[in-house]
Nucleic acid binder design. Structure first.
Lengths: 223, 223
DNA sequence: GTCTATAAATCGATAGAC
DNA sequence: GTCTATCGATTTATAGAC
């Protein structure tokens, strides 16, 4: 019963978020729409910030779930490596287009005066891991186009956390290309979503798929 | 005299923006700090939204000015093409680090219930033009590594506005690489600024310069 | 062009009855 | 666990004197 009400609150909060943005989220308006007293919400969430935290965690988890699922399906299938590589980015973009405000919550400007909760680390790691998995797999099986790894020791140290947690035993050059691809994907989706393609790219979907393909090539994945 | 007060208002609004974010911007608090009555501000700006518009335009203009200047200096100098290519991205990152909230105003989540003013188009175009100029120059002088342009007609049409306004007579393949580089730069800076490098990239400055260098290589610029 | 005063709202959070 | 009532604060915007 309690979980049911909690879910209802989160659902309404989600629609408010989608309509007015994170900064405008208010406990009172949510209570109003639910036909509850504002004070009643405090039995479910410690306050506005706690509710916002729950929404952020839910957004991270939803995105990670969807991308992970798409990546799993692609990897289990009979598609090419290129198709496996594309699955996660395409799922990310679909999710973002369906939930622009939640994308903004994760990858947009931080909400002023608010610190992101620690619980986002796990779904965020799952997300990046799902995207990078085809790269790690290809490298392990020796199907990744080799290239001399002339990265400096400082550069290797700078990205050590990524290598250690997501890409064990991977040369720094490949880790760098992977991080670059990650940045490009986030950049392209954000630019589209936040309205910067308006007078520049007339077919964002086509540009995105082409970008993802090119990123696969740059990383050295076979098609 | 009137311009002087207008500038003062914008200056105070800027510091408030930097401290509390765009959504928390209020006319009253600005008036309080200036020692004016809140109603007096209406003689200078039509209301909160007009003030926010002015701030957004100012941010775009400031960024475009700084990046254009850096690009001009680099092009006038005796540096390599690689140095000319790096100038604009490095200036962008410096500007962003110095003014994180203004970066968020331009490239972060849109302010809810608010539409960006049309006056941003000009500085935005200047900004992208400054960044892409080394590519255009290198291509014109035949110093860009050639590559078969196997882009589809649909792809060529999708990026036609960019080619027409910023990269005349440039093959689609190069326009695509340039737009990809633009997306990567925005993505890397945003990821750093919005806190996503926290547990991943330990030396963002080093990673950024390396990224910019790699982007130059991908575009086919000589070093 | 600046002020005082005020209207009409919003909000988060808490106390205490039931 | 939900309610009423309330405190104390915020805000945008406008009317009208000077």
């Amino acid at each position: 019963m309690r979980d049911e009400v909690t879910r209802e609150i989160l659902a309404v909060a989600g629609t408010h978020l989608a309509q007015e943005g994170a900064a405008a989220l208010s406990l009172r308006s949510i209570a109003r729409e639910l036909g509850m007293a504002p004070s009643a919400l405090y039995r479910y969430f410690d306050g506005r910030d706690a509710l916002l935290s729950a929404l952020i965690v839910a957004a991270y988890t939803s995105l990670a779930d969807e991308v992970e699922l798409a990546a799993d399906v692609a990897q289990a299938g009979t598609g090419t490596v290129g198709a496996q590589w594309s699955a996660a980015p395409l799922a990310m973009r679909s999710w973002a287009l369906a939930r622009p405000h939640e994308w903004g919550l994760i990858f947009g400007s931080p909400v002023p005066g608010y610190r992101a909760p620690e619980e986002t680390i796990v779904p965020y790691t799952r997300l990046v891991a799902a995207l990078l998995r085809p790269v790690v797999v290809a490298h392990r099986s020796g199907r990744l186009t080799a290239e001399p790894d002339n990265a400096s020791a400082a550069m290797a140290a700078a990205v050590a956390p990524v290598r250690d947690t997501l890409m064990p035993d991977t040369p720094t050059a490949i880790v760098l290309r992977a991080l670059r691809a990650w940045s490009t994907i986030i950049g392209v989706i954000s630019l589209e979503l936040f309205g910067h393609w308006r007078q520049a790219v007339l077919d964002p979907a086509l540009f995105f798929t082409e970008t993802v393909r090119a990123l696969g090539d740059q990383i050295g994945l076979p098609r």
